[in-house]
Computed example of a mutant assay.
Amino acid sequence: MTDGRGASRADVPLTSVEIARVGDLLYRWTGMIFGENKRYYIERRIADRMGRTGLSSAAEYIALLGSHLEEREALINAFTINETYFYREEHQLAALSNDILPELVRVRRPGDLVRIWSLPCSTGEEPYSIALWLLENWGLVDAYNIEIVGSDIDTQALAKAREGYFAERSLARLPTTVKQAYFEAEHRHRRRIIQDIRESVRFSPANIVDSADMARQGKFDVILCRNLLIYFDDAARLMAANNIHDCLNPGGFVCLGHSESMGRISNRFTLTRLPDAIVYRRD
């Protein structure tokens, strides 16, 4: 790691007050909790950002965050976790094609719009998985106007998602036939998802704890918000749940991660047991 002049620098030691200040800012901006128990994680990332901005003290850097929106975005990107892969929690994809979408289109006409939102979408594996799964497993996919949106607070992750390059680790759960049909040939240990699929997903930044930011995305019929709320405290979870609720059309569905439960967060959703998955529905 180097400082702004190219010299080597170690991790920057932060005082307890500075750790608390960084944690407070990240909580306010993202809903995620970072405190003294994650000191090493915080100091590593602050040191890296200080090196890139050429600042010599943590106090200067924290002050910069108050007025420099681009650096604030860069710091948020540094703290987000982008661990995902194709066909993650495949049982929910099965529920989407077997029960959720058939229920939604039961009262719609061919050609009607159906909106599906992957939030957070990380580097694109999850929204692209939705597109691939529906093409392979839902016979009515071409009968309706399916709009898939992927959103994340991490703008660097979104840029990678739009590019559509993936290492073999991300593709490991995909059937060989799917990889052959929808991905270009391997080049430098990566494969690119084909242009038709890249163009079938729209990527847009969104902050789940910012109600105005969420509202700008419009209304959705299905929201997949998996393995995000586990990083929040109760207050931030409730805020996120309310924002999700307000972005759902009446009767819309929410899919959470396997260790998350909307019932412990909000009473504004109805738990729905489907053959393949437990989901939540806006009344």
Score class of each variant (00 low, 15 high):
218 G>Y: 13
119 L>N: 14
61 Y>A: 07
256 L>I: 14
123 T>K: 08
27 Y>S: 05
257 G>D: 05
127 P>Y: 06
250 P>M: 05
236 A>G: 09
36 E>H: 08
9 R>K: 11
71 E>L: 12
249 N>Q: 11
240 A>E: 03
138 W>T: 09
188 R>F: 08
269 F>A: 03
235 A>W: 05
225 C>D: 04
39 R>D: 03
151 S>C: 09
101 L>D: 00
56 S>R: 14
242 N>Y: 00
259 S>A: 14
261 S>K: 12
116 I>R: 03
223 I>K: 01
196 D>S: 12
53 T>A: 06
82 N>H: 07
88 R>P: 00
125 E>P: 02
165 Y>C: 14
269 F>G: 01
168 E>G: 05
234 D>S: 11
5 R>E: 13
31 G>H: 10
31 G>E: 01
45 R>F: 02
168 E>S: 11
32 M>R: 03
9 R>F: 02
236 A>R: 07
27 Y>Q: 08
19 I>W: 00
255 C>D: 04
240 A>F: 07
149 V>D: 03
26 L>W: 02
282 R>V: 06
244 I>L: 15
99 D>C: 09
109 R>L: 13
56 S>W: 07
129 S>L: 02
199 E>S: 05
25 L>V: 01
179 K>E: 08
264 R>V: 09
9 R>V: 14
137 N>Q: 06
136 E>C: 12
52 R>G: 08
